[in-house]
Design a protein around this nucleic acid. Structure first.
Lengths: 228, 228
DNA sequence: CGAGCTATATATAAACA
DNA sequence: TTGTTTATATATAGCTC
């Protein structure tokens, strides 16, 4: 059912556009109602829905709208230049904000990459020789491989008679469980935006435990895995 | 940090009202921008924020607003009565919707009560003699009691030497585990709004399994537990 | 005050009835 | 087409700095 992230462009599909305009129109008018009520301020919205000769508005009554419009028209033109400028900067601010969020997102992704790496290391895997493996797709692949390996081993354990299996195999299975646990933990961490290993990278633990040499977190910016 | 559920009344606190008006004003203008972009329709909003001589608007430019206003003024007065009516009914619809949600909520609560009851029954507890126990507070209390009992029994099991405990006690502990499992399941079901036992109440299972006599689900409306 | 953060409340895209 | 349901995306209240 996965709702898309809504790219802010004209909706091509006639059906969808109509549906979304209806929903959003209601939501919008409700918002105007709320801000008026909560903050006791004058506000007004006019929306021309498709196929309607008349617009929907807030306030709902015509005289209510007229009152706000009258006030607006009364506004000294002198100050309108200022307002216009403010609105333009408003747009710029939104762009800047979006860029900031993008950077944050990138940083989060780096965290995930590094933590995946570290878990692999902790769970007994060997370090990568080739740094080019370290982009997200390759890491996905890596996780998939781990999961497949786990499946394979668990199935093998089931096939054999539990009573004659050697100790070696049991240990193997236990290790697999451990890996699976670690992977589960990663998922939880990603969901909760909670990074229990943060302290580790910040030097809370002795250097002998750092698998990545002296690359650390500077000013809250995580190093690109390619730098490791 | 618990954000309150925002009661839609004038915010008394001067500080809070100012803060909320600022945030919501931005949100509102953003929404207008979005609906215009997504649906390609004309829309306009005018918000008078406190302490500002000029209102904030969408579209941001003065001529943009004027264009919408001109169109609005041009509207034949004949049809405005209809629009006004529609808007009034809009309000009524919101009230009706709220009431529907309230009813739904009540029905959900009944489901929970009944399922709690049933789990208690299935897990070996005795049925209640007194129907007055069956409101939510009492049921909360009931669950608490069950949990305490579970704790007590688990602790008792640990205290004793596992090697000399009789089979009876082990069964008891197993039963407790079962109860705990059931309770966990209830929590999961509540969270996911998923009711695997629904079919049970709808007669999917033979009558001999129904602990509550012939009281069933009619038209999707669950009986009040007091009727059981 | 203004900016930023986090936990919740709301809005709403899709899928379905 | 309108209404419901469900999973996500967004908006924001209350804090903190």
């Amino acid at each position: 059912m996965t709702r898309k992230k809504v790219d802010l462009t004209y909706v091509i599909s006639d059906t969808k556009r109509k549906a979304t305009s209806k929903k959003r129109k209601n939501g919008l008018l409700k918002k105007v109602d709320e801000i008026s009520t909560l903050c006791g301020i004058e506000a007004c919205a006019i929306v021309y829905a498709p196929n309607d000769s008349q617009p929907d508005t807030w306030p709902p009554s015509d005289w209510g709208v007229q009152r706000v419009l009258a006030r607006f028209r009364r506004t000294p033109e002198l100050e309108q230049g200022k307002r216009m400028m403010n609105q333009e900067s408003f747009l710029r601010q939104r762009i800047i904000k979006a860029q900031e969020q993008l950077n944050k997102q990138r940083n989060d992704n780096r965290k995930r990459e590094v933590i995946h790496l570290m878990l692999h290391y902790l769970s007994g895997g060997k370090m990568f020789d080739d740094a080019s493996m370290l982009d997200m797709n390759d890491l996905s692949w890596l996780i998939d491989q781990n999961l497949k390996e786990i499946d394979r081993m668990l199935n093998r354990t089931q096939e054999v008679n539990p009573n004659d299996g050697g100790e070696q195999q049991k240990q193997e299975a236990a290790h697999v469980d451990h890996v699976q646990q670690e992977i589960t933990n990663v998922d939880v961490m990603q969901k909760e935006h909670h990074w229990p290993l943060m302290g580790f990278f910040n030097g809370a633990v002795g250097d002998e435990m750092l698998p990545f040499g002296d690359v650390g977190v500077k000013n809250g910016i995580w190093p690109s895995p390619h730098a490791l």
